[in-house]
Design a binder for these strands. Structure first.
Lengths: 334, 334
DNA sequence: GGTTTCAGTGAAAGCGGTTTCTCGGATACC
DNA sequence: GGTATCCGAGAAACCGCTTTCACTGAAACC
């Protein structure tokens, strides 16, 4: 195939006048090598344009330099740029640390599929999972000693390491904003409350109410599914049954836009009659009419945080979950 | 780290009563092994739950089983789910073929960065690039014998292998639709015409005009940049200068939505006064008001096609570019 | 029937690193 | 000054699989 005459340790060793063992030590940061010899090695590496062979390193050391990013294809990878953005953040940071990102898009449900097989086969040094519900696989891998980091929160209080946006805080922020604008009856359209993100956003909404001595009425909590359609439908319904509503916090932008549509179709206007806040600060938020007040999360930052946790884990450091702050972006809708 | 007592060839060989060389032959599909011995090997593999060690295979054979997917981070990976979707299509197909997807998000411009280094280092069996303009790197790698496939079209008539949506055909389809609805003055808002996709969509628009004996006036060709804002701004301008316009083909949905906004703000209505067709069939297309008539492209299919081309290349087959058909989705806007 | 092919197989030499083990010399200790 | 320690460095084994090479017995040929 390629007759690339890539130099090997033996060439470096000869060039530097040391043994291969010493070359290895120097290149792996072993401090017990005499500085002068070390610098000779470095010079040789430079001169010959040497680059380590991953396969050989992996075989000899057992470390592959590969981190799997596992995406369940149930996930709406296809509709939502969210995960892609997180991935890019991850990839970038890993790359800076000489690690490669192995992207695995597959059904992870069956804890015995090819993905599981692969991960358990020792082909990667660690695995990053995207917000998943209750996969036994993750636990199992973790128990087996494979460093695992979750992007998003695992919903049980497991010992898994994760990084996540402050869904709770962000939702509270959004709701507080509505309340502070004078809204008396603030409804919420939740996301999937089976998953942690959805639940946390709901909790944040309730928390903001508690802070001002209110209790969010059950009737004002509408279970959506992150789609435009659900936002629109639920809002239309609740406007019928609870016409006193003057504020809505939707767990994502798409549902918020759906809500706005329903509000307008009911003859009311946003933000005069009903104020609306979304979550995500997606592209649509800027361009919608009225533009959407929403909660911005640092998605690339989330990816970076996840990668950093992984790296720390690999280094054997004791790591704790990371929660990323959100930001309220005020536009026209509230 | 892991004391996984994974079986090796030697165990299989003993269990099956053959040599390691024979085990290797069987596992690599060498037909010259006696069927009976072969089945003994397979039985042993089954019994011991054997799984090949990638690193060892890579070291010995020079094939890593890894395909790089290189994404220039200039690209709007962050805003547009398009590339994520393509990636998932790629990853899925590669996985089915025992290949892994290495995701590299980095600046590729400098043909000498870490990415280039990595790809030239023989660490991957092939590389997939996302729609790029004129990178010398791609050519170089290709010349070096590394199988390279482009997702999207390279704009020069190079010998690079690629798969792409039929941008030309789709744009023609869209424009024809407008013309067939009786539009007399159809404008287009282009994407980046420096890149092939943008140019091809413009060409398709012109082709449709030619088919009916018209020539698209220069004044009606507006150079956008795929953003909502550009669609809106350019439309507002052209409505001033060319009020006779009664149809607009935008090179993507976002700009189409921008156009609709501008049209409505000018006091006209869609589709009565001006009809609008977009391109992509994104989520927004369904949910906008009026909903958007647009050109749907099979994005996952594009990913799959790219992966298939890569696999064929790896097998030494002679491959030719693949162009994927588009589909006109008629909704309210035209 | 004897010599050539040839297909099938095993022994063994790598692939390019890492790591253990050993050893010589220098330092420390009594 | 002699022995016990220690440290830095090299030799060599090893990681698990692929592939060349040589060899065997059988089929093919004259």
């Amino acid at each position: 195939m390629k007759t690339n005459e890539r130099p090997t340790y033996s060439q470096i060793a000869i060039h530097a006048g040391v043994s291969e063992a010493t070359v290895s030590r120097v290149l792996n940061g072993d401090l017990k090598v005499h500085p002068e010899r070390a610098s000779r090695v470095h010079a040789a590496v430079e001169a010959l344009g040497y680059k380590k062979n991953r396969a050989a390193t992996a075989l000899a050391s057992g470390r592959t330099g590969l981190i799997a990013v596992v995406i369940d294809d149930d996930l709406s990878v296809f509709a939502d740029p969210f995960w892609a953005t997180v991935s890019s953040g991850i990839s970038r940071v890993l790359l800076e640390n000489e690690l490669q990102t192995l992207l695995m898009v597959a059904s992870v449900d069956k804890a015995d599929g090819p993905v599981a097989h692969y991960l358990e086969g020792g082909e990667v040094d660690g695995a990053i999972f995207f917000q998943l519900h209750k996969h036994a696989l993750v636990r199992r891998l973790s128990k087996q000693g494979l460093p695992v980091v979750i992007a998003g929160s695992p919903n049980s209080n497991s010992e898994l390491i994760f990084a996540d946006t402050d869904n709770f805080g962000g939702a509270a922020q959004a709701t507080r904003h509505l309340l502070s604008l004078g809204c008396q009856n603030v409804a919420t359209i939740t996301g999937d409350v089976e998953a942690s993100a959805g639940l946390q956003r709901l909790n944040g909404y309730q928390q903001a109410h508690r802070e001002v001595g209110k209790i969010a009425s059950k009737a004002l909590i509408l279970q959506g599914d992150y789609t435009f359609e659900s936002g629109m439908r639920l809002t239309a319904q609740v406007l019928e049954t609870n016409p006193e509503i003057d504020g809505i916090f939707a767990a994502n932008d798409l549902m918020a836009l759906g809500a706005i549509r329903a509000i307008e179709e009911s003859g009311r206007s946003v933000p005069q009659d009903v104020k609306v806040v979304g979550f995500d600060d997606s592209v649509m938020a800027t361009n919608s009419k009225p533009s959407l007040t929403t909660i911005r999360q640092d998605i690339v930052g989330l990816g970076a945080a996840v990668a950093e946790l992984m790296i720390a884990s690999l280094n054997g450091e004791i790591v704790t979950p990371r929660i990323l702050k959100t930001e309220l972006v005020i536009r026209e809708s509230a």
